[in-house]
Simulated assay, not measured.
Amino acid sequence: MEIKPSVWTIGEILQWTKQYFSGKGVDNPRLDAEVLLSHILHRDRLYLYVHYDQPLAPDELIAFRECVRKRAARIPVAYITGEREFFGLMFTVSADVLVPRPETELLVEAVLKRLESRPAPRIVDLGTGSGAIAVSLLTQLPAATAVAIDISAAALVIAEENAKRHGLADRLELRQGDFWQPAAGMLFDAIVSNPPYIPADDVAALAPEVRTEPVLALDGGKDGLDYYRRLLTDGYSHLAPGGFMAIEIGISQADAIRSLAEQSPFVIQEILLDYAGIERVVVLTGRGRENVEN
């Protein structure tokens, strides 16, 4: 990769980078170029348009060139910048956690809708990763507390940083361990999870950017359903009276989740579609509690 001229304006470097990224098969080449340049300049993207003819300083050009090199190697933009926006908040991310995705905001919205009238809800976020789900919920529910669980110690370091970043360290308890194990004996008003759900044999065929993310956060076992089985088998014993479970699912997994639910202590209350019309979030209540207001 070469950026030959010694002086580039913002407009020129964005146009060059868009073409370069396109040639490398990068999705959204213009957007990625703008996000990376905004990161280097410590400015928002609007600044780039207002100052289209502004020359870049030599140190800015050098730093941007390194970002472009990484992105062309299909490293996710969020790992390059160290940040990702989710639910209107900025989160620290690293290669130790899954990059928060827009469709997961639907999961947060579904939980908020059901908890907003409760006085002091208790939440558990299983497989918390960056903590984006738990932190987003707590920012909107000032009386709530949450337990965030992850098997990865490195992921919990990032989650702790995000809790502190948003002033929630006193309301978010971080626990390391294998799924339910750290929550032994605890009851929750809301059980929330975006678990690994990619079938093991499909992981190698994912986009290069996705394959850079932690395999622990992607691999859902042979059929992609391992963690849903654990959620539906063991979750009932952690459900407070009137509580519910909300989970994100993968494409074409809704029918399998329906079958699992029929054999579990849970009953599906609602399945929500994402903006692409895909069944994405499943809300369940304890069997026999279907009519409880949430």
Rank of each mutant, 00 (worst) to 15 (best):
S94F: 05
G23R: 06
L141V: 01
D59A: 15
D202G: 02
I247F: 03
Q269D: 07
E105S: 13
A205D: 05
T9D: 03
R165F: 02
I158R: 10
V192E: 15
R43V: 11
T212Y: 15
T17D: 06
A153W: 00
H42G: 05
L137V: 12
A205M: 06
I40G: 08
D189G: 05
G235C: 09
L107H: 09
N194P: 03
L172G: 02
Y227N: 07
R171L: 03
P5N: 06
R84D: 01
L225I: 00
T233N: 14
L206M: 14
R122G: 11
R65M: 05
G25L: 13
V97K: 12
I13K: 03
A72N: 13
L174E: 12
L218C: 06
Q19G: 03
Q15T: 07
L56R: 05
A254W: 00
R211W: 00
L126M: 12
I133W: 02
I278S: 13
L138R: 09
P214Y: 01
L272F: 13
I247M: 05
G127N: 02
D32H: 13
L46R: 03
E105W: 02
V210N: 06
P76S: 15
Q263K: 14
L187V: 04
K24L: 13
L174G: 11
L106R: 15
L98I: 07
A134M: 02
G131T: 08
F64W: 10
P196I: 02
I268S: 13
Q54R: 14
V283I: 13
K24S: 08
Y79T: 13
L31N: 07
A148V: 05
G243R: 05
I278V: 12
V50L: 10
V124W: 07
L168R: 05
D32V: 00
R74S: 12
L232E: 06
A110V: 03
